[in-house]
């Protein structure tokens, strides 16, 4: 078992958002989480990544045999978790290449592995950018600053493909992408699937799941999973909405 969330309750400003939430993800699995707005999907993603805005009331999270709640934000990343943000944060003045080199080197240092020098890293980032149709000149730009919605999402995937996490959470990575960009992103996810163990894909649309086949689909409502199934569940939602699920 790669990720095991048990009876997790989470609140923010005294409002409980996740209620007794449980989910297990095995190595190599792709899980899709669907659900109406406000059902707690992004909260789940943020809590897993260690966002300190949220208060854990109850439950536990085991990731790669480690008690995740005892690890801080960067330790979780270094352990192999990656969150592709729904709204990637703009950081003017921090350019993507030195930032990403520091990120991968922090992880390698944590693992006591050899770090990248700037030349080796430049090679790596260029090859990964090419796969995502990101031109080289974009690699000297500031992080997400002045990017279009689609560009931001593509940069999240670039970061993911360099950091090679054990588990990647894609929080509505498909929203804001046109069909061509969506294809580029999903191709990349499918390529990474061979290298990365598992994915949690948060989405509103079935069309993404046509391009990435999930092993399991979960419906989330009011802070918990109300139904789990296979891809056919996603089709059912597309046809009849979330109202039939309680």
């Amino acid at each position: 078992m790669l990720l095991d969330i048990k009876n997790l309750s989470v609140s923010v400003e005294d409002k409980t958002i996740l209620k007794d939430f449980s989910l297990s993800v095995d190595e190599g699995e792709i899980h899709a989480i669907m659900g109406p707005n406000g059902s707690g999907k992004s909260t789940l993603a943020n809590v897993l990544a260690g966002n300190e805005t949220y208060e854990i009331e109850n439950g536990n999270i085991i990731f790669n045999q480690k008690n995740f709640l005892e690890l801080n934000i960067e330790e979780r990343s270094q352990e192999g978790l990656f969150l592709a943000f729904q709204y990637p944060i703009e950081i003017p003045g921090v350019s993507i290449t030195p930032f990403l080199r520091s990120a991968i080197n922090s992880k390698l240092k944590y693992k006591k592995e050899k770090e990248f020098d700037s030349l080796e890293f430049a090679k790596l980032i260029r090859s990964k950018a090419k796969e995502l149709n990101i031109p080289n000149e974009m690699l000297s730009r500031s992080l997400n600053s002045g990017f279009s919605g689609g560009e931001k999402k593509r940069y999240e995937i670039l970061q993911m493909s360099i950091l090679k996490p054990k588990l990647a959470i894609l929080d509505e990575t498909d929203s804001g992408l046109d069909i061509d960009a969506l294809k580029i992103v999903t191709d990349s996810v499918n390529r990474l699937k061979k290298e990365i163990s598992s994915f949690i894909i948060i989405t509103h649309y079935e069309r993404l799941l046509d391009l990435i086949t999930p092993d399991k689909v979960h419906i989330m409502k009011n802070g918990k999973i109300v139904e789990s199934g296979t891809k056919s569940l996603a089709r059912k939602i597309e046809e009849s909405g979330y109202q039939s699920f309680e």
């Binding site: 990544a49 801080n72 943000f85 944060i89 990120a103 922090s106 992880k107 970061q159």
Partner: peptide, 13 residues
């Protein structure tokens, strides 16, 4: 939010 984003990529505080 910026600190959270950077740390979520493995950078220390």
């Amino acid at each position: 939010n910026q600190i959270f984003y950077l740390r979520s990529r493995g950078l220390s505080k």
